[in-house]
Design a protein around this nucleic acid. Structure first.
Lengths: 304, 304
DNA sequence: CGGGGTTAGACAAAGTCTAGACAAAGCCTA
DNA sequence: TAGGCTTTGTCTAGACTTTGTCTAACCCCG
């Protein structure tokens, strides 16, 4: 974990030192540590928040509202800004996610899907995403609930239209969070997407969002990216890492093909429920939940 | 959850701050929170209402009536969707949308796609969506720009990854607007989606968003909805209208199949670039641009 | 001593507020 | 068709708020 002086933070965020101090004084948007002689010492979480605030302000949001917005997610960014100490292959050292308190009943999303009722669906999602941090909700509620949707569909209890109906709404929620997490110019670049023929993008979008919230510069390509497009993209962007999603066993072959084609170009990683079934030709597996995977990748990149 | 100042709302709705204040003063169409110093703080619901009012006014409704419509607590009387085919009258008397002033250059979206640069892409979209009302931007900039993306792709100037990259970002913008438009319990129910095998959902999502902004209770099913799911959905929801998108000529056959399967259940409409190529088995064609189509449908359902 | 950091206060530009006025456009009546 | 009333977007004037920047005086480190 690095520490930065005002001048460094000014360079990183593009905000003048005087303005940084004014933001701190007026909105308490950060409270950096101090040296014995009162010099400010910002950490990564502070920089992430100030970058986000700078971005909002540049986009036309008044500083006071931007500060409020940034401060709202405070506890989570604090956790994300302190990734594990060393290059440990798994995300040890990161605090475990607290369990969710008032999340909706496990089958409420299925009920909403069956009813095609947007009011019930919205209420369910509102309730879920209000129950904790984005990371807590994704791992603790969203992914299990989506699994239930899949089960209900295979058992014939849920029509495709109902599945589409909730998938679309969940996609919109995730999209909003992804956008809200903002870009991070200068941060490690990570390309994220799905192999050709793979369309289930909810988990990988959630993953991309968590990565963004941890300060990565995520380039999200979405579903069904042809193998040669992966190669061209990596050649063009030279990212610090590439993550290929493997949501189902049906995607194993195409993911293997993509991984093989990318071998040697950069750090290639495979994530998702079926990732472990891929023959890892020079690629690594991101094991565990969505948030675990993101933390593992984050730790790896910060260690290198 | 987000809050906005007058200036931001003006940018989001395409209505000048002075007019926004006049609407509030004269019609109490919104009553935004105030800061301690009396500054207005609009929330998402306020923005949705004002956007809708702006759209109505742009369509020729006098401001006073538009305000009444937007303010009305009592839900609209559900119009009886008479099944059967008919030539739908095109959007009556609605004046053409005002041209956009400061929209980005025509090829800027293509440039952003080629570069895979999220900053440039965000800036482009920010600039575009700040140039006028949602409807103005959709018809006047977004659809033409997406056409250019398609052209660049067919001409080999743009990789699939670049196309995915912008499509995803545009989808996220539209998703945000769709959510911000809010639900309309009690209003005429319209089911919107794409036929089986059809995946290009940007135009139909934009269409669904405009419909919502006009006060419909839209149930958006998304892409690739199987024919029997369409039938089950319509049987279950008994909507006032169903709109099947036909984005390309490749989708004509499946759209025809869906329209045939739905014949007689409710008012079935076909919209999109290739809609006119469908053999209209009891369905009507929504001609013209995205906004034109939405206005036509809206006029039909309101019976005026 | 010089370069940088710190606080506190001050300042100007930009943003917003209210209340009222005004002109173009629409509508009604004769 | 003309006159008069209403509607509605815009503008003005003066006061207040927000916000980035600047200054003065002091502190810290090599």
């Amino acid at each position: 974990m690095s520490r930065y002086t005002v001048k460094q933070v000014a360079a990183l965020t593009g905000v003048s030192p005087a303005t940084l101090r004014a933001w701190e004084r007026r909105y308490t948007v950060v409270e950096p540590e101090r040296t014995a002689s009162k010099y400010r010492l910002y950490d990564d979480a502070d920089v992430a928040r100030l970058s986000r605030m700078a971005e909002l302000v540049a986009g036309g949001t008044p500083a006071s509202l931007a500060a409020e917005e940034v401060t709202r997610d405070a506890p989570l960014l604090a956790a994300a800004g302190a990734p594990g100490s060393a290059a440990v292959p798994s995300a040890q050292g990161a605090p475990p996610l607290a369990p969710l308190a008032d999340r909706p009943a496990d089958d409420q999303l299925v009920t909403a899907a069956q009813s095609l009722d947007p009011v019930l669906l919205d209420r369910t999602l509102d309730q879920a995403f209000a129950a904790g941090s984005f990371e807590q909700v994704v791992d603790g509620w969203l992914m299990p609930a989506l699994t239930q949707i899949g089960v209900a569909w295979t058992e014939g209890r849920l029509d495709v239209a109902g599945e589409h109906f909730v998938s679309g709404a969940v996609h919109r929620r995730l999209a909003h969070s992804f956008e809200a997490a903002g870009g991070r110019a200068g941060a490690p670049v990570v390309v994220v997407g799905l192999p050709p023929g793979s369309f289930h993008q909810l988990a990988v979008l959630a993953f991309a969002t968590v990565l963004r919230r941890q300060g990565m510069d995520v380039r999200y390509l979405g579903p069904d990216v042809p193998t040669d497009s992966w190669v061209r993209t990596v050649t063009q962007l030279r990212p610090d890492a590439v993550v290929v999603g493997v949501p189902t066993t049906l995607d194993v072959d195409s993911a293997t093909e993509v991984a093989a084609a990318l071998r040697g170009t950069t750090s290639v990683m495979l994530g998702g429920a079926a990732a472990s079934a891929v023959d890892t030709v020079g690629a690594s597996i991101l094991a565990g939940s969505v948030v675990d995977s993101a933390r593992t990748l984050s730790a790896t990149l910060h260690g290198s």
